[in-house]
Amino acid sequence: MTTPPHQQGDHPGPAGATGSAVTDPYRLSRKSTVSLVGFFLAIALGALSVMVGLPYVIMKPGPITNTLGKLSGKQLITVSGAPTYPTQGALDFTTVRISGGPGYKVTVWDLLSAAIRPSEDVVDEELYFPKGVTDKQVEEQSAAEMIDSQQEAVAVALKAVGQKVTEHIVIAQVAKDAPSASLIKAGDEIVSVDGKAISDSSGVRDAVGAHKPGESVALGLVRDGKPVTVEAKTRAAEGRATVGVFLGVRFEFPIDVKINAGDVGGPSAGTMFSLAVYDTLTPGPLTGGQKIAGTGTINAKGQVGPIGGIRQKLVGAHDGGAKWFLAPADNCDEVVGHVPDGLRVVRIATFEEARSAVEAIADKRPDSLPTCTR
Rank of each mutant, 00 (worst) to 15 (best):
345 V>I: 09
38 G>T: 11
222 V>S: 10
84 T>F: 06
155 A>L: 05
150 Q>M: 07
103 G>H: 04
219 L>M: 11
270 G>R: 01
67 T>K: 07
109 W>I: 05
180 S>R: 13
182 S>T: 15
271 T>D: 03
373 T>K: 14
331 N>H: 03
288 G>P: 05
43 I>Y: 10
64 I>F: 04
325 F>P: 02
114 A>M: 14
182 S>R: 14
86 P>L: 07
343 L>M: 11
369 L>S: 05
102 P>E: 01
79 V>Y: 04
204 V>G: 07
178 A>V: 12
182 S>L: 14
232 A>L: 02
158 L>A: 10
256 D>Q: 15
234 T>S: 04
339 V>I: 13
211 H>G: 03
338 H>G: 12
71 L>W: 01
79 V>M: 12
36 L>H: 08
196 K>P: 00
115 A>H: 12
215 E>D: 15
7 Q>T: 15
222 V>C: 07
91 L>P: 06
231 E>R: 10
139 E>Q: 15
236 A>M: 09
371 T>V: 11
141 Q>Y: 13
270 G>W: 00
130 P>A: 08
348 I>N: 02
238 E>I: 09
339 V>A: 01
325 F>Q: 00
35 S>H: 09
317 A>T: 04
118 P>C: 06
200 D>G: 10
10 D>W: 10
148 D>H: 09
288 G>Q: 01
264 V>E: 01
341 D>Q: 15
170 V>Y: 11
173 Q>G: 12
325 F>N: 03
365 R>N: 14
72 S>V: 09
306 P>E: 01
80 S>H: 15
252 E>R: 11
107 T>Q: 06
251 F>L: 14
158 L>V: 07
56 Y>T: 05
331 N>K: 02
21 A>G: 07
224 D>I: 09
283 P>R: 02
265 G>V: 04
61 P>N: 04
283 P>I: 03
79 V>P: 13
367 D>A: 14
100 G>W: 02
167 E>L: 09
230 V>I: 15
269 A>C: 12
324 W>Q: 04
20 S>V: 13
4 P>R: 05
160 A>I: 06
283 P>E: 01
340 P>D: 00
239 G>C: 13
358 V>Y: 03
150 Q>T: 05
66 N>F: 06
232 A>E: 01
49 S>A: 15
53 G>I: 08
317 A>C: 08
269 A>L: 09
203 G>M: 05
304 V>I: 09
135 D>P: 11
137 Q>P: 05
177 D>F: 04
208 V>Q: 01
235 R>C: 01
147 I>A: 10
299 N>H: 04
124 D>R: 13
155 A>E: 00
223 R>E: 02
6 H>I: 13
332 C>F: 00
44 A>W: 02
214 G>F: 06
293 A>N: 05
337 G>N: 09
74 K>W: 02
11 H>P: 09
242 T>S: 11
256 D>M: 13
315 V>L: 03
319 D>E: 08
188 D>F: 06
321 G>D: 01
82 A>I: 14
56 Y>K: 08
368 S>G: 13
266 G>T: 03
143 A>W: 00
129 F>P: 03
181 A>C: 11
21 A>W: 13
67 T>L: 15
286 L>C: 12
300 A>R: 04
162 G>N: 06
40 F>Y: 15
332 C>L: 00
65 T>R: 03
